[in-house]
Simulated assay, not measured.
Amino acid sequence: MKATVSRRRRLLRAVGLSLAFSIPAAALAFVVRVGVPDVVRLDDAAISAATPLAQTDATLRSVLLAGQAAFQPPWVNLAVALVCVWAWRRRSLGTRALWAIVTVLLGWGLGNGVKALVGRARPVVEHAVDHAPGYSFPSGHATNTTVAAIVLLVLLWPQLRRRGRATGVVLAVAAVLLIGVDRVMLGAHFPSDVLGGYLLGAAVAAGSALGYLGRGPAAPDEPSVDHPSTAPPSPEEP
């Protein structure tokens, strides 16, 4: 009973922190929804400058299209799920693995919900390389990749040494930034769509991690669930 109450409390804390961290994303969504002229002008200028590069350079276009396909949310979520299974079966990180996959799916669902709520049309690009369906804000690729990158770092952090942690951070940041560039250069999203995806994804992942797992991601999971034989958790453990 006590464990159930603790999990419920942590879940509520995770939801509350995610909502609080989402305020910047909500503010940007409002700006996009009402069509603030300066933002519209900057978005249009960025699309006009970036998309011709993908149209004229065949190699760059192939790389961008490959990145778009590889980082489709279903494939990213499948990769996270496989890592979660490994963490659960091989590293006894059951609690963290469950948290990780639930958080990624939550971020995916929220991103789609915000898309429908804002209802922003995709950029109109002459001779577009690709035509993406659905609404534009926020970028689903950016949202999902950001959530997945943060979640995987938190999940695997206890298993990594110093060099592995540094490498993980570099790879996560590179993946998030490159997918944002990909979306703009292909003309699938405005820069503000990508920024909105970053803000929403980071809010969901960081709020969920701090609320449910606490401030000590390197500490062991709940001993009663994931590490029956380990010492009691540190004071920072939830």
Rank of each mutant, 00 (worst) to 15 (best):
V76T: 14
W75A: 11
L19V: 15
V83I: 08
S62I: 10
A172H: 10
V114M: 08
I179Y: 02
L11A: 15
V170H: 05
A149C: 00
F71W: 13
L110F: 08
G109F: 07
V204S: 06
V151A: 05
G35W: 04
H189Y: 01
A20I: 12
P232R: 12
A87I: 04
N144L: 07
G35Q: 07
S48P: 00
A149I: 09
H189D: 01
Y135M: 09
L98K: 08
A175W: 13
S18I: 02
A188I: 04
L200Y: 08
A97P: 12
A209I: 04
A166K: 02
P24R: 14
W157E: 07
E236N: 04
R9G: 15
L65I: 06
L155W: 11
V83K: 12
A206E: 03
K2I: 13
P138N: 04
A25K: 13
S92E: 15
A121E: 14
G111L: 01
L53F: 11
H131Y: 11
L64K: 05
K2A: 09
Y135T: 05
P158D: 10
D182S: 06
L178C: 11
P238I: 12
W86K: 01
L106H: 02
A69N: 10
L155S: 01
A132M: 05
V176S: 00
A142F: 03
A87H: 04
P24L: 15
A132F: 02
L200H: 06
P133A: 09
A70F: 15
D226F: 13
W75F: 15
P228L: 14
I47E: 01
I101T: 10
P73C: 05
G134T: 10
L105A: 07
A3M: 12
T4R: 08
A218V: 10
L64W: 02
R120V: 11
P37W: 12
L200E: 00
H227S: 11
P232F: 13
I101Y: 10
A202F: 02
L60G: 01
R161Q: 07
V31D: 11
A70K: 09
G201Y: 02
A202M: 07
W75K: 14
V76Q: 09
S192R: 00
G94M: 15
F71P: 01
S139Y: 08
A148W: 05
R162H: 10
H127K: 10
H189W: 03
A205W: 02
L42K: 07
T167H: 10
L210F: 05
A166D: 14
L152Q: 12
T95K: 08
